[in-house]
Amino acid sequence: MHALLAQARMEVRLTLRSGEGLLVTLVIPTALLVFFALLGLAPNEYARPVDFLLPSMLALAVISIGLVSLSIRTAYERHYGVLKRLGATPLGRGRLIVAKIASVVTIELLQTVLLVAVALTFGWRPTGSALLAVAVLLLGTATFASLGLLIAGAVRAETTLALSNGLYLLLILLGGIAWPVEHLPGPLALLGLLLPSNALASALRSVLSPVPAVPLAQIAALVLWTVLFLAIARRTFRWE
């Protein structure tokens, strides 16, 4: 446990020391929340834009750390032989992965506090079920961390960099983050409906609405995506 906690603290420090990591994990979701809130961009069915934007940016924060930051950092650690060496220490490979996931959850806690604080300044008031929201965020974390590790362990570091950033942009535009998928044109709406980001963002909107509902369909979709990503990662992840 001591080795696990020490590695988790190091993973958090490495993320916070990285300018690129801070940009993706903390700056971009917060900046987009402020930008869209100032413009008042949100579907008409929401009384206040921030009621739509906060769940969207919470989902984006999960994607930022779980997919982009985790995958790129892990891929370059594999490229430079760090994963191989750490896996051979008493820490072991299993606890190394757990430490990485623990660091992701820690950064997400910081992201959530920051986003909620900004949302409060734009008139957002807590509604819905906080417990359900936490459960959905943890499930979304499992989904996108699994995808991040899958990419990091299967392709070259340079390819991981391009693929993760490309997926990040796709999920923002078509995955229910910037705008609900039902407002997109037909083929794009169908594509967006299938993306895990849409399931996460829609689930968060459901549980944070004034009349919260358990989003069973979205939860089932996230579980299926997580199982799929883990199954593929188990077969394709290479430590060196």
Rank of each mutant, 00 (worst) to 15 (best):
1 M>C: 06
3 A>D: 14
7 Q>D: 10
8 A>G: 14
9 R>D: 14
10 M>C: 13
12 V>R: 07
14 L>H: 14
17 R>A: 12
23 L>S: 12
28 I>Y: 10
37 A>C: 13
39 L>K: 15
39 L>G: 01
39 L>M: 15
44 N>S: 15
47 A>T: 12
53 L>Y: 08
59 A>M: 09
65 I>Y: 09
68 V>N: 02
72 I>F: 02
79 H>C: 06
82 V>D: 10
102 A>R: 00
106 T>S: 14
108 E>F: 01
108 E>C: 06
116 V>S: 10
122 F>W: 01
124 W>E: 12
127 T>D: 08
130 A>I: 08
130 A>H: 06
133 A>I: 08
137 L>Q: 04
137 L>G: 00
141 T>I: 00
143 T>E: 02
152 A>Q: 06
153 G>R: 10
155 V>A: 04
157 A>T: 10
160 T>F: 07
163 L>V: 15
164 S>G: 12
164 S>I: 06
167 L>Q: 02
177 I>N: 12
178 A>S: 15
181 V>F: 08
188 L>S: 13
191 L>R: 03
194 L>T: 02
195 L>Y: 10
196 P>W: 04
197 S>M: 08
198 N>H: 12
199 A>G: 08
201 A>I: 06
207 V>Y: 14
207 V>K: 13
218 Q>T: 03
221 A>C: 05
222 L>K: 09
224 L>D: 02
227 V>C: 07
230 L>C: 02
233 A>S: 11
233 A>Y: 04
